[in-house]
Design a binder for these strands. Structure first.
Length: 942
RNA sequence: GCGGAGGUAGCAGAGCUAGGUCAAAUGCGACAGACUCAAGAUCUGUUUCCGAAGGGAUACGCCGGUUCAAAUCCGGCCCUCCGCACCA
């Protein structure tokens, strides 16, 4: 559809305020939310999916008569925006390019520089892209209540978050302590998943290495290992040929690690000091003692040591490490020490894997990684320590690893060394490392009472798909202490320690409550210059009027209104988002609600969607498959995108955005528009049997649609109401019906049903064909069903030619029975059609005439006896039918309608389909040859 | 390893909770026909194999079981994906 038309309706919806619901206790409410976007750039097709799904649901619920609230707001907290802004100030070329591209989506080349300049102030980035998202979302026709918009940087909101943290603190959930965190040294700040490049798709976690100390005379070496149990198989220690090593000092001893590693060590062991650089020759000059075994080993040089992974010192266990094994010369590979046995699979060992994967040298990185992964995993789960391993002999690797680690640490023969699970950098490009922070604030999610409440909540909620309930329960169990504040970034200051800013996921857990009364909060803030805890407590928690005693009448009135809105709208009925949010945002959402709210204000349900990929690949800049939302509404249309989202994949599946499937959707969409282009509701055609069938069919489609939408099976719902109704219309017309006859009865319901997914075109058609109101605020009715009943009654005379009169009068007014009759009779016709077709195909005959013989009363009678096993009631000559009956019995079916009348009335149609004369007759039993049976007429081609 | 999801026709993807109406929706692709000068679009049909009569055979990862009857229920096995704890 043309952009102008879509914009026209978007403007009219805005003017008419139909998506700005007010509190109305007489109406049942439905409150749906999607997590707010973090606005450091423009959004792409992937981001649009969840909002589109939510909008379809919101619109559908409106059509079912609910008072629907679908708000949104913007997340501006955290460090990325700050960091981007800083990099722009510093003139970083890749950041400039990134933002130039963003800006060019919305503005002309001349404006870019000015805009970029303004982005040197972080808030401007947030505000600019918030506006951009609003414009993108408006152009997709979302039925969002834009009057409730706010951002996490707004004063009113920060007052609310402050209250939330005071409240958590009073519940004993805020703690302070030293804590390992992912950290950026450049930004001098802890980083969260949202700050890390690809952090949402490729998670970074903290791994605890055992830094094994190898004692030497002048200094000791520290080698960080995830497999401390392998110390029993050590042959030597590797250091990198070209790397820079340093001597550092802590706890009264001297240690050697790489320069890079020392930087990281310093963040974990705060009193570590750098002494001097040390040449490799010096390291190679002395011997080292392996802890536990006491074995003396030398350090050797190699090329595969990564200075930035662990300590840059690696101990070599060729018997159980692929890299170490491959680094040896072939002749040295004999007689290497073995310390792990694999009773289940003797062939699972280093040599086997090297041979199997054909690893040639330490340069076969991919293969080495793969082999390492296989070996480590298998040894861990299936291996046992052998007799070389002293007191640990006989233990499973799993168990030994833990015991050895404990022993080493307690004896001072190792230190804990924390490392990131993969190399990572922040969105602004600085390196992510592990730091142990002192005085870190965190939310303690571990108390039993909280876990219990959270589990109760999780178990009481609705899930789509249901299997995420288990995942949510797991997430609740996993959560322990969550660092909740940072030293810098945008956001709210921690109320009890204003050097800290509340971390960006922790400030966004119960914010949907703010949607319910943001206007009142603004009023109160304007009046008082703050929002005191009394007030917030009154509105969102106790509702105790005594709290308002000291405030002016104006403030009190706002409080009362806010409370009224809050109690009407809250809790959120559906929160819809993609599954990567499950283990972070959604679990915090649940936890914080469980801690701070009671029924009926707790969350009611979650819908969790799959991801979006583009042309089969993960959406990413480097793959060049990023399609911005802006492009969508400009190049295709909002409706087409929405239809694609609705119909291309189930909510829980991955949605692939690609041109091929898009073309299909566009074709279908166009055929809908073509259909409406040729309808003429004023045309008066007398309805016939087939028009009634179509109405019946439509009613069933409509029932399916509502049933499916009710269970959030959006795809199935739209396959039914869109694809299949179009197919039904094709069938109707092929059968000689005129869709105009039925269209006037179905158009209201059909357009309302379709409008949840494709509101713009439906709005246009509604105004053109129905009336001058909004389809977007129309509710689903039963016009088609009523029409079916009425037409059925008024066409009695006509229908008596097809169906028995007594049948007609017995089901009159009962739309279910009428529907069943019409569907089954038409199914009968198309069954006959298929039979004839199959006979033609099997025989290769092109018939000039087709005889269809239906059974007469005597056969029907006999068939009943046969089916009921009443052979004694059969006439003697009918008994001859028994052998044939045994063969065809499963094809026999008795119909309410009269087969002869039905077929006679449709013989003309059948004749047309096969270009032959179709004759219908009734026959009695024959002596030789085949008989017609109920539901199974005899077909003969000529 | 634990937990979760899943393996369906050329592809995508329903069905499985309540076993029969399932050779199995819907869409795509392919093939044939109609329309057209032609192509595209559209429409009609076909798309596991066999069949000169509407039928038959084999089929929903593999193997077994329950049942008159299994894509659907039960047991075992194989494989894939996702998440995760001292998993790399």
């Amino acid at each position: 559809m043309e952009k102008e038309t879509e914009e026209k309706w978007q403007e009219k919806w805005a003017e008419s305020k139909i998506f700005e619901p007010s509190t109305d206790p007489d109406k049942e409410k439905f409150f749906i939310t999607v997590p707010w976007p973090y606005v450091n750039g423009s959004l792409h097709v992937g981001h649009g999916r969840t909002y589109t799904l939510a909008d379809i649901i919101a619109r559908y619920k409106r059509s079912e008569g609910y008072n629907v609230l679908f708000p949104m707001a913007f997340h501006q907290s955290g460090t990325p925006i700050l960091a981007f802004s800083q990099r722009l100030r510093m003139g970083d070329p890749s950041t400039i390019k990134l933002y130039r591209d963003y800006i060019l989506q919305y503005e002309s080349e001349e404006k870019v520089e000015e805009r970029l300049k303004s982005f040197e102030e972080p808030k401007n980035i947030a505000d600019y892209f918030s506006k951009a998202v609003i414009s993108d979302f408006r152009s997709l026709g979302y039925s969002i209540d834009w009057t409730r918009i706010f951002t996490s940087a707004d004063q009113e909101y920060q007052e609310f978050v402050r209250w939330q943290f005071e409240k958590l603190n009073s519940l004993g959930l805020i703690k302070k302590g030293s804590y390992p965190v992912l950290y950026s040294k450049v930004d001098d700040n802890a980083v969260g998943e949202d700050d890390i490049k690809d952090g949402d798709t490729d998670k970074v976690s903290i791994e605890e290495f055992t830094g094994v100390i190898f004692k030497g005379n002048a200094f000791s070496l520290i080698a960080a290992s995830l497999r401390p149990e392998t110390i029993f198989g050590i042959t030597n220690i590797w250091i990198g040929k070209e790397l820079d090593y340093v001597v550092c000092r802590f706890s009264g001893n001297s240690y050697v690690v790489t320069k890079e590693s020392f930087q990281k060590l310093k963040l974990q062991i705060h009193d570590a000091e750098l002494i001097r650089e040390v040449p490799n020759s010096e390291i190679l000059a002395q011997e080292y003692e392996v802890p536990e075994t006491g074995k003396k080993v030398r350090a050797l040089e190699t090329t595969f040591v990564d200075p930035d992974n662990g300590t840059g010192v690696v101990y070599s266990v060729p018997g159980h490490s692929i890299w170490d094994y491959v680094a040896l010369d072939p002749e040295e590979r004999e007689n290497i020490p073995r310390i792990i046995e694999m009773p289940k699979n003797q062939n699972m060992n280093v040599e086997g894997l090297v041979k199997k994967l054909q690893i040639q040298s330490v340069n076969d990185r991919e293969k080495l990684l793969e082999a390492t992964q296989i070996l480590y995993k298998d040894e861990f789960y299936n291996g046992f320590m052998n007799n070389e391993c002293g007191q640990f002999a006989g233990m499973s690797v799993n168990e030994a690893r833990e015991k050895i680690k404990e022993t080493l640490l307690s004896e001072g023969k190792a230190i804990k060394f924390l490392e990131t699970s993969r190399k990572a950098e922040t969105r602004s490009g600085s390196k992510v490392v592990v730091a142990v922070l002192q005085d870190q604030w965190f939310i303690d999610y571990s108390p039993d009472w909280l876990k219990k409440k959270a589990h109760d909540l999780v178990n009481s909620m609705y899930y789509y798909p249901e299997y995420y309930r288990a995942a949510m329960n797991d997430a609740v169990d996993w959560l322990r202490e969550r660092p909740c504040a940072r030293r810098r970034g945008l956001g709210t200051r921690l109320p009890f320690d204003d050097r800290w800013i509340i971390e960006s996921l922790s400030d966004s857990t119960i914010y949907p409550a703010v949607y319910t009364c943001i206007q009142e909060l603004k009023n109160i803030y304007a009046e008082l210059g703050k929002i005191p805890d009394d007030v917030t407590e009154y509105i969102f928690s106790s509702g105790d009027e005594k709290l308002l005693a000291s405030y002016s009448e104006a403030v009190a009135e706002n409080c009362n209104n806010a409370r009224k809105h809050f109690t009407y709208w809250y809790g959120v009925d559906i929160r819809l988002t993609a599954y990567p949010h499950l283990s972070n945002h959604l679990s915090f959402y649940v936890m914080n609600h469980a801690a701070l709210f009671k029924e009926p204000f707790l969350p009611k349900g979650l819908i969790i969607s799959g991801l979006v990929v583009s042309n089969g690949a993960k959406i990413s800049k480097s793959k060049g498959n990023v399609i911005s939302l802006m492009t969508i509404s400009n190049h295709y249309s909002a409706d087409i995108y929405r239809l694609y989202v609705a119909i291309q994949a189930d909510i829980q599946s991955t949605l692939d955005w690609n041109e091929n499937d898009l073309r299909t959707i566009i074709k279908k969409y166009d055929s809908l528009r073509e259909l409406f282009a040729r309808i003429d509701l004023n045309k008066n055609v007398n309805p016939s049997y087939i028009d009634l069938w179509f109405l019946a069919r439509f009613n069933r489609r409509m029932e399916d649609f509502r049933k499916n939408m009710g269970g959030f099976n959006i795809r199935a719902a739209y396959v039914s109401i869109f694809y299949e109704v179009l197919n039904d219309i094709r069938r109707l017309e092929a059968r000689g019906g005129d869709m105009n006859t039925s269209m006037k009865y179905i158009i209201r319901e059909w357009l309302v049903a379709l409008s949840a997914a494709i509101p713009h075109v439906c709005e246009e058609l509604w105004h053109e064909h129905v009336e001058d109101s909004f389809v977007s605020s129309a509710t689903l009715t039963s016009t088609a069903r009523n029409a079916l009943n009425e037409l059925f009654s008024s066409m009695k005379g006509e229908l008596e030619k097809i169906f028995p009169a007594e049948l007609i009068s017995s089901i009159e007014g009962n739309h279910e029975k009428i529907t069943d009759l019409l569907l089954s009779s038409e199914e009968y016709i198309s069954g006959i059609e298929n039979d004839i077709r199959e006979i033609i195909r099997a025989t290769g005959i092109s018939p000039k005439g087709i005889d269809v013989a239906v059974p007469d009363d005597s056969i029907i009678q006999a068939s009943r006896h046969l089916i009921n096993n009443e052979r004694d009631s059969l006439m003697p000559e009918q008994k001859r039918m028994i052998p044939e009956f045994m063969k065809v019995r499963k094809n026999i079916s008795f119909h309410e309608f009269d087969e002869y009348s039905l077929l006679s009335n449709n013989s003309e149609y059948l004749g047309k389909v096969f270009s032959a004369t179709v004759k219908v007759k009734k026959t009695g039993p024959v002596m030789k040859g085949k008989n017609p049976w109920p539901g199974r007429p005899l077909i003969r081609l000529e």
